[in-house]
Simulated assay, not measured.
Amino acid sequence: MVNVNWPNRLTILRIILVPVFVMAILYHQLNLGLFVFFIASATDALDGYLARALNKKTQFGTIMDPIADKLLIDTAFICFSVVSSLPDYIQMPIYVPLIVISRDVIILLGVASIYLISGKLNVRPSALGKITSFFQMLTIIVLLLRFRYSNWIWNITVIFTLLSGIDYIRKGTKEINGVL
């Protein structure tokens, strides 16, 4: 049974906001999309703070919080690459979401593999992973703000995404080798 405390409620709210965000982008309501993205990002910061401050960390939150984050970010990247009627300077090329989503899938498969092998789930974001998340969120924000030079930001994001992906693969390989 899920412990439905406030941090978990905020995580669930973030998941519920994803289709609202998608609809805002599909209907070219970028200001609404920015508002929804801001609220979703705020729930991410707040749920983590509350879980630590109130000692309300749960297994549900440990698993669902990063899934909610990736669902929001990956969905945003997909939207900005496939909605063809957006202005050229905010329609990103397909390689950007492909790299972002591939990294997330590889990390998810790695975590699942480690769990199946060791029976333990130890999800810890790295400093490079946090920098990557920052740039991924910044990319979404500059696109929603219609920043003319968004391509500079999304290409920096791609570099950090690749570097953090390699770093997680390296760390996951070490952990798997330590178990075997």
Rank of each mutant, 00 (worst) to 15 (best):
L144P: 11
V123N: 02
Y168H: 07
S164T: 10
S164D: 13
V123S: 01
L143T: 09
N155V: 02
L121N: 04
V158R: 03
T157K: 06
W152K: 05
F135A: 06
L145F: 10
Y168C: 09
S113H: 13
Y149P: 05
L145A: 13
F134G: 10
S150C: 04
I153P: 06
W154R: 00
I141G: 04
F134N: 03
K120G: 01
S126D: 07
I141V: 15
L121H: 03
V111C: 02
Y168T: 10
W152V: 15
I140C: 09
M137R: 10
I131D: 00
Y149D: 13
R148Y: 14
G119S: 05
L128Y: 08
G165H: 06
R146N: 13
R146L: 11
P125C: 01
S118E: 04
T132Y: 00
I141Q: 04
L128T: 11
S133A: 15
F135W: 14
F135N: 08
V123Q: 02
N122E: 15
Q136S: 14
V111S: 10
N122P: 00
T161D: 01
L138T: 09
L121I: 14
L145P: 04
W152P: 00
Y115I: 10
T157H: 02
L138K: 02
F135V: 09
S133F: 09
L143V: 09
I141S: 07
L128V: 11
V142T: 14
L116I: 11
S133D: 09
L162M: 12
I159V: 15
V158C: 08
L138M: 11
I140S: 10
I156A: 12
I117E: 10
T157E: 01
S150K: 05
F147M: 10
L116P: 00
R148P: 01
S150R: 05
W152R: 03
I156R: 06
K130N: 02
Q136D: 11
W152M: 13
L163G: 05
